[in-house]
Nucleic acid binder design. Sequence first.
DNA 1: CAAAAAATGGACCCGCAAGTCCAGAATCCC
DNA 2: GGGATTCTGGACTTGCGGGTCCATTTTTTG
Lengths: 223, 223
Amino acid sequence: MKALTPKGAATRQRIIEGAAAEIRERGAAATTLDDVRARTGTSKSQLFHYFPDGKEELLLAVARYEADRVLTDQQPQLSDLTSWPTWSAWRDRVVARYLGQGRSCPLNGLVSQLGRTTPGAQAVLTELLHAWQAEITAGIRHMQRIGEVDPGLDAERASAALIAGIQGGVMVMLATGRIGHLEAALDVGIDNLRASRRDNVVSGLPDRRLNPASARHDRQETA
Amino acid sequence: MKALTPKGAATRQRIIEGAAAEIRERGAAATTLDDVRARTGTSKSQLFHYFPDGKEELLLAVARYEADRVLTDQQPQLSDLTSWPTWSAWRDRVVARYLGQGRSCPLNGLVSQLGRTTPGAQAVLTELLHAWQAEITAGIRHMQRIGEVDPGLDAERASAALIAGIQGGVMVMLATGRIGHLEAALDVGIDNLRASRRDNVVSGLPDRRLNPASARHDRQETA
DNA sequence: CAAAAAATGGACCCGCAAGTCCAGAATCCC
DNA sequence: GGGATTCTGGACTTGCGGGTCCATTTTTTG
C-alpha cells in the first residue's frame, strides 16, 4: 500500500480507470476481475498486488473515482451559483451530463453491489452528497444576500430538496430512459427559488414562511 | 405456468414472499436460491417448477410484488389527495413507510441486479412510476379545480418533480440513513403547490408562469 | 377407484469467478 | 554493480450457487 513506484502508481490508476469504464458498459454486477484484467492488459497478480483485499477494494476505489467525477463534471458552475444565468447553465450541465451517461449509473450499481457489506461505500456516498449540497446551499445563500431569493427561506432545506430531486430524476432516467423527471426537478426547484423572491416583492409579505403546517404532525392512523 | 392447483398457488406465493423477506434482510445481490429454499421450506425442484426461468423469473416476480406494495402502502391517501389535510397525511405516510423500511430498498437492488439483463424489470419500474405519478397528477388537478392550487401550474411537471424528489429522498436515506432529504423534498414540493395559489390570490397575477427562462437554452461550453 | 397430472425431495452436475502461489523480470537504492 | 524490493505473468485451486434429473408422493379428474 505504501512505497509505490511511479510505474506502479500508473498501473494502479490504469486499473481503476479500466474498471470504471468496464463497469459503465456492463454494469457493476456483471463486471468480473477477468474483464478488468483483459481490458487493462494486466494479470491477476497485479490486481491483487494493488488491491490486496480483492474486488471489494477495487470497487471502492472505482466508487471514489466516480464520486469525484460527479462533482468535477459540474464545475465551474457548481462553485459559482451567483447569478440566475449561472444557475441555468449549471442546470443544463447537469442534464447534459446524465443525458450523455445514458442508462448506467456507476455509483448506484457500485453501492448496491458493495452495499451492506462495506461501510466505506456508504461513506463515499455520504461525503459526495454532503459536498454537493454544501455547494448548492452556498449558492442559495449568495442569492439571498444579493436579494434574488427570499431571505426567509431555509437554504439548507431547499438545497436538500433540490439534491433529492436530482437524485430521483437520475434514478427515473435509469429506469425509464427519459430525462423529463430530472429536468422537471431542476426547473421546478430553481423556479421556486426565483418565485420566492418575486412573491415577496409583489405581495410585500415579509413573514411568508415555507412549510407552515406540514412539519410536526403525525397523523398516519388512517388505515 | 397454467393449471395451478390451489396448493401450488399457495406454495408459489410463499416462495415469493419468502424471497422478498430474504432480499429485504440481506439484499438482492446476496440472496441465493438456497437461502430462499431454506427460508420457505421448499426444495430446489419446486423453485424451478414454479419459476422455470430460474432466478431471473423469481426476482422479477418479487419485483412485481414489491412494486405493488409501494402503492398500496400509500393508500387510501394517495388516491384521495383532495384536501390539504389529506396531502399532509399522505406525506406522513410516505415518510413513515420508508422510515420503517430502514436501510434497504428492495426495488432498487432488484432492478440494479436484473438491470440491463431483463427488459421486464424496467417495465415493472416504468409502470410503477407511471401509476404513481398519475395519482399525484390527479390530486394536483383536483386541487386546481377547487381553487387551492394555481390553475396555471403544469400539473404533470409538478408531479414529475415531486416523484423525483421522493425517489431521491429515499435514495439519500439508503446511503446516509437520514430521512431529512425525503422530508425536505415532500415538504418543499407540497408547500410550493400551496404557495402557488396564495401568490396568485395576493398578487392577482393570472399569468404567472413557472419556468419562464430555463427551458430552451444550451449554454454548457463554459469549461 | 384408477389413471393422469401436478407437487415435492434431494442428490448431482458444472461452470464461473474470486483468490492463491511462485517464478521470473524490471526497478530502485546504496 | 549488486542486493533488495517492487512489479508482472500465468497456472492452479476452490467454493459457491444456479441449474438438471429422476424418483416418489399427493392431488385432481373422469
